[in-house]
Design a binder for these strands. Sequence first.
RNA 1: CGGGGUGUAGCGCAGCCUGGUAGCGCGCCAGCUUUGGGAGCUGGAUGUCGAAGGUUCAAAUCCUUUCGCCCCGACCA
Length: 487
Amino acid sequence: MAETGKITKQSEDFPAWYQDVIREGDLAEVAKIVKGCMVIKPHGYAIWEKIQADLDRRFKETGHRNAYFPLLIPMSFIKKEAEHVEGFAPEIAVVTHAGGKPLPEDEQYCIRPTSETIIGHFFAKWISSYRDLPLLINQWANVMRWELHTRMFLRTTEFLWQEGHTAHATHEDALAEVARMLDVYGDFAQEMMAMPVIRGVKTDSEKFAGALETRCIEAMMRDGRALQAGTSHDLGQNFGKAFDVKFQTEKGREEYVWQTSWGVSTRLVGALIMTHSDDSGLILPPALAPVQAVIVPIYKKEEERAQVVEAAQKLAADIRKKGICVEVDDRDGKRPGDKYYEWERKGVPVRIEIGPRDIASGEAMTKLRLSDGKEKMRMDTLAAELPGTLAGFQRFLYERAWKFREDNTVVLNTWDEFREVFGESGGSKFAWCHWDGTRETEALIKEETKVTIRCIPLEGQGPAPEDGTCIRTGRPSRQRVLMARSY
RNA sequence: CGGGGUGUAGCGCAGCCUGGUAGCGCGCCAGCUUUGGGAGCUGGAUGUCGAAGGUUCAAAUCCUUUCGCCCCGACCA
């Protein structure tokens, strides 16, 4: 880790850069006293709150309601769905003692790694008729997975997320839900995070433990690696059968429900950092920036200070009327240059400087987080123009991220090309390649190159389907899949 | 679990080889001067030197034991 106050260059050491941006942006720190856990500091948590607020609105607009289930899940529950146990058992933390006594093995709890099982249990109690369906529930919660290697926001032992859990009368309904929620995530990523994503289907070996199918959104980080930014699972009747979630159909027949689950986590904050930020620190898309604009008053003498701060407060009030979150940084004893650096590292999109000269001329200096120069703007029209400026900034970030991804996406046809692109350096690109569809080939490629199949693109999300031959084995393939090194 | 490293002020580190009053940078506090891109000067506060035991007149330093953390090789939102 670099010394405090310095940010390692992205091009020199990407992981160090990432840590530095988080520290200098005052987003979070490693808890240290609790293995693998992090403390999300106010500025970082404020970003998560903005993410939550917008997603929550989208969930409610699509008919879901929030609920909350226990943090502790009986160990016996986890074991009920065979693939689910197998997938999660190694990373589960278990409560073995309570009330000052050891718990018998059959009374032990695990701290939820995800809630399909306990929610399945309650769905069984709540659902008896087709009239109870669909049941559309979302939970905002923390979960815990005992990971070997942790990285702030991307993979920590405890993390915050939302998990949607729904039950439907038919597989068709459930599949529509899976698709709908994947689109909610995809739209959110693109509209709010200014992060282009590829929507696709996971291969069998990458899908959620216990699901029939997992759909995902995959984004490219600025080192070319892929980040899974959200998932939506078709659980089929697997959990329905394991937890006996049955309902009576209109015709009086008894059937198991079809379930889905879907989630995004605080990992999105990591995605935000690695999609937009630069060597000066964090860059936030205006739509998710807790502070969208900051006003720095500049003064020398006391009487100037009073005058300048007053003008800044008045401008701030005008800006707030436009629905923009603005802060006046009138902290005394900290010089303007110092403040500039601080707000830059915190990713604030727009900075406005007001000094005696500006008050005299009726203008203010504005600086966008991404441009080098400053621009003079009339103070009386600034508030009116700011929403447009922010919208333009948001659009610019999306387009820049899009172009970066396009520039780092390749279509590969031979294994030699593949080995060249994914060399020893550990770098990555998005590569569209043919794959023979077998788990064995996928594992072989992963072992040889650490490259994985990120997803099989949904229609329109990748190259149009075409017959070809597997990049590794030469066997026939019907469609190209997305390959990359990933987080 | 195997290999390597490290524990000294809030943070980052030096001191250890060759035992002798615990130091540096940043940060923090106070005052003055400053304030349109990371301020300067002066003064100040802060430590059971990871823990336990031993050797010694004397241990951060030498010896023994122990604990924690970090990095590299087997899982993943």
